[in-house]
């Protein structure tokens, strides 16, 4: 994976930088240049909430080569507490405990590595809130 591709996503992947349409209030992640609803082009930067709930989930058992060491691993669609949604892995969860509506929080993890010699790509996963 060419490093520029992961480097340019750092604000989103590391810091959950998104934007919001001042007219509709909808949050876009990743940030957009045009609001698809209101057609507004002056969206304002926002940082996403770091807690949310699982809207849906699956367990990937046949994984792409970059993820075979981690399979089986859960992937979910998470609705954050500010209403924004994202797709990410659900780390640190037992498959049996996964359920729609479960509370999760964001953690910084390594998402994938480009073979044995390429760059590491870091970013967000969610983990169950148990505390």
């Amino acid at each position: 994976m060419f490093p520029a591709r992961i480097w340019r996503e750092i604000p989103q992947r590391y810091r959950l930088e998104a934007n919001r349409c001042p007219q509709t209030g909808e949050i876009y992640f990743p940030p957009r240049l045009v609001c698809p609803e209101g057609k507004c082009v002056e969206l304002e930067p926002v940082k996403l909430a770091e807690t949310g709930t699982v809207e849906s989930f699956t367990v990937i058992r046949v994984a792409p080569s970059a993820f075979t060491d981690e399979a089986p691993y859960p992937v979910g669609i998470v609705k954050l507490d500010d209403g924004a949604k994202m797709m990410c892995q659900i780390a640190d969860a037992q498959i049996e405990e996964l359920k729609i509506g479960m509370k999760v929080k964001i953690e910084f993890r390594k998402i994938q590595s480009d073979g044995k010699a390429g760059v590491h790509a870091y970013g967000y996963k969610c983990v169950p809130v148990r505390d």
Binding site: R5, E9, F29, S56, I60, I77, M87, I100, I111, A121
Partner: peptide
């Protein structure tokens, strides 16, 4: 690529997410 596949989602995975929600 950057917001689904990057995280390890596969095609069966995407439809599985829809299936799980449909079942729910």
């Amino acid at each position: 690529q950057e917001y689904e596949v990057f995280h390890g989602a596969t095609f069966p995975g995407l439809y599985a997410l829809m299936a799980k929600r449909h079942m729910h």
